[in-house]
């Protein structure tokens, strides 16, 4: 027996680690104790890299938008080159400042108008927008428990719902976007007040449990119902873009376009306190 294990040690080890992986996957909701330590260590290791790369991304984006497009002018106005580049650089910097100011002003306006206390956070990284096994849709924020962020807090932008916090560390937190397949949000159609559940479908949203005879049309706005205990009532989720009969003849197949362009997000707001009803709802409602 021992000689068999020694001779096939790699295969034996592979089987053990495969079983361990399957065990982890099947117990995903329970979680393991060691998981938090690994997450914390990885966060510590990756945070400086992510901050540096995020800053590089923002600079490159600024250069691309404000400078590269205008390179052709150089040939036509050689005499004014130096002055132009200096002005462009200044202009680009100002444009970035204006863009940032506009975004922050919108966030501030939203923050002031919002009846809930919110914390503004910058996005460090986006997971799952590339290729391959990137079926997840999450993002990492530069705020964590030290800023009062806690698990299950709603994350919004000025355009509407972004997702909810699923993990917090001291200085960072992870947000499960509403487009993630694991996300489900209790919603209502704004026009007809019909209830449904919006589930993530990677790049779109699927509105479920709407019956064949319910009044839903393309262009209807979908907002949070406030019943989940996580999202306050009335936040924009998206717009209905496709309504079909559905395969089961009971419910309709409805696609919803998220109200926020998740790829273009740079700053978000975390609602640090739920609606006055959320405490009551939480007691009897553990879903999203």
């Amino acid at each position: 027996m021992l000689s068999f294990v020694k001779r096939h040690r790699i295969i034996v080890a592979s089987v053990i680690f495969c079983l361990l992986s399957l065990h982890l996957a099947s117990n995903r909701k329970k979680g393991t104790g060691g998981e938090a330590i690994v997450r914390y260590s990885l966060s510590l290791a990756a945070r400086p890299i992510q901050i540096t790369l995020a800053s590089v991304r923002s600079r490159v984006k600024g250069m691309w938008e404000g400078y590269i497009y205008l390179v052709g002018i150089k040939e036509e106005n050689e005499a004014l080159n130096k002055k132009m580049y200096a002005l462009l650089e200044e202009n680009n910097r100002l444009k970035e400042e204006i863009g940032l100011n506009e975004r922050l002003r919108d966030l501030l306006k939203f923050k002031e108008e919002s009846p809930y206390p919110v914390v503004a956070a910058k996005i460090l990284s986006l997971n799952g927008f590339g290729t391959g096994e990137n079926w997840t849709r999450t993002l990492t924020l530069d705020r964590g428990t030290i800023s009062g962020i806690m698990v299950d807090m709603p994350v919004v932008s000025t355009q509407g719902v972004i997702g909810r916090v699923i993990e917090t560390l001291k200085h960072t937190s992870t947000v499960l976007l509403l487009t993630d397949p694991r996300s489900d949000i209790d919603v209502i159609i704004q026009r007809t007040r019909i209830h449904g559940i919006v589930e993530g479908g990677s790049d779109k949203l699927i509105l479920k449990y709407i019956r064949q005879f319910d009044d839903v049309e393309t262009g209807d706005m979908v907002v949070t119902s406030g019943l989940s205990g996580i999202f306050p009532k009335g936040l924009q989720v998206g717009m209905v873009t496709r309504v079909e009969k559905g395969e089961d003849n009971i419910f309709r197949y409805i696609e919803v376009n998220p109200s926020t362009d998740l790829r273009r997000l740079e700053e978000v707001l975390v609602i640090t306190q739920g609606s006055p009803l959320s405490g009551i709802e939480n007691a009897g409602n553990s879903g999203t």
């Binding site: 997971n127 079926w135 997840t136 699923i166």
Partner: peptide, 8 residues
């Protein structure tokens, strides 16, 4: 862990 995916 990095992608907040299902562990395993």
């Amino acid at each position: 862990v990095f992608g907040a995916a299902v562990l395993g």
